[in-house]
């Protein structure tokens, strides 16, 4: 279970990125974090594994306050938190297998990682994960030879190789096309359900969030302004999160897009006949 209490972050000489965020994520819950860009979604999840140092507040994972940990303990704690990134953040020049095994870095001594002599158990688990995400045949390809969707699958396998207790997912589909986005979201939610793994998913695509998330938290200017089930995400709630103007513009953009797609479809059908 993850419990954030009074978490705040302010960068030097700027508005606070996060103000007094208190949030509990129980075991097995998949939580979608939505909000306009600059609302602090990315800062919030990075404060949890302290890729960004929170200014004040507590980050409790189990019975440990991650915000208080020293360097060595922090590394130990990071092993328990898997992270999936917007632009995959794979080490591009390493193979798929090396990328998946890098999820074990926190568990193995330096010489093992340097010589790529991972314990048999870790290697077996890495193969199992690659099979789960459907990339068994790509184990020895270099990461930069894969497509976007495939890379994100490797990113998922790397995060799972850590055997995490919590998954942090930062805009997993922002660089993917709509169809691949849905496949990736489905894979993430399935895996979380299989393992009872709680996850926080930053997502800017509201329909996608409504489709896949069990609970949605809306962030605006570093504060939580909505917390509820996807079905409670009404026009009013979205206006609160995105602001009247932006929400209407987004909705109009979506409508225009849908109309353009429908138009293109009609034209294609006309040609086909």
């Amino acid at each position: 279970m993850l419990h954030l209490e009074g978490l705040s972050k302010s960068y030097a000489g700027g508005d606070p990125a996060l103000s007094d965020v208190t949030l509990t994520v129980p075991k097995g819950e998949i939580l979608g974090l939505i909000g306009p860009s600059g609302a602090g979604k990315s800062t919030l999840i990075r404060c949890i594994n302290r890729l960004v140092e929170p200014t004040t507040g507590a980050v409790r994972l189990g019975d440990e306050d991650l915000a208080q940990l020293g360097k060595t303990d922090l590394r130990r704690a990071r092993r328990r938190i898997g992270m999936i990134f917007q632009e995959y953040a794979l080490v591009e020049r390493l193979t798929v297998m090396e990328n998946v095994l890098s999820g074990r870095l926190g568990y193995v001594p330096f010489w093992r990682s340097f010589l790529r002599r991972y314990p048999a158990r870790d290697v077996q688990q890495a193969y199992r994960l690659l099979d789960r995400v459907g990339l068994m045949d790509k184990a020895d390809s270099r990461a930069d030879a894969l497509s976007g969707g495939q890379r994100q699958r490797v990113g998922i396998a790397r995060a799972l190789a850590q055997e995490p207790e919590l998954l942090l997912v930062d805009e997993p589909t922002a660089s993917l096309d709509p169809k691949t986005s849905r496949q990736i979201m489905r894979l993430i939610t399935e895996i979380c359900q299989e393992r009872g793994l709680p996850a926080i998913v930053n997502i800017h695509d509201v329909p996608l969030a409504q489709q896949f998330m069990q609970r949605i938290v809306g962030l605006r200017a570093g504060r939580i302004v909505f917390d509820g089930a996807p079905s409670e995400l009404t026009e009013d709630a979205l206006t609160t999160i995105y602001g009247a103007e932006d929400w209407n513009a987004m909705r109009k953009g979506d409508a225009d897009q849908a109309e353009a797609e429908a138009d293109a479809q009609r034209r294609l059908e006309a040609i086909a006949q």
Partner: peptide
Amino acid sequence: QIEAVRATGAG
């Protein structure tokens, strides 16, 4: 890429 490696708990 460096951030991602750090996030795994690597030394």
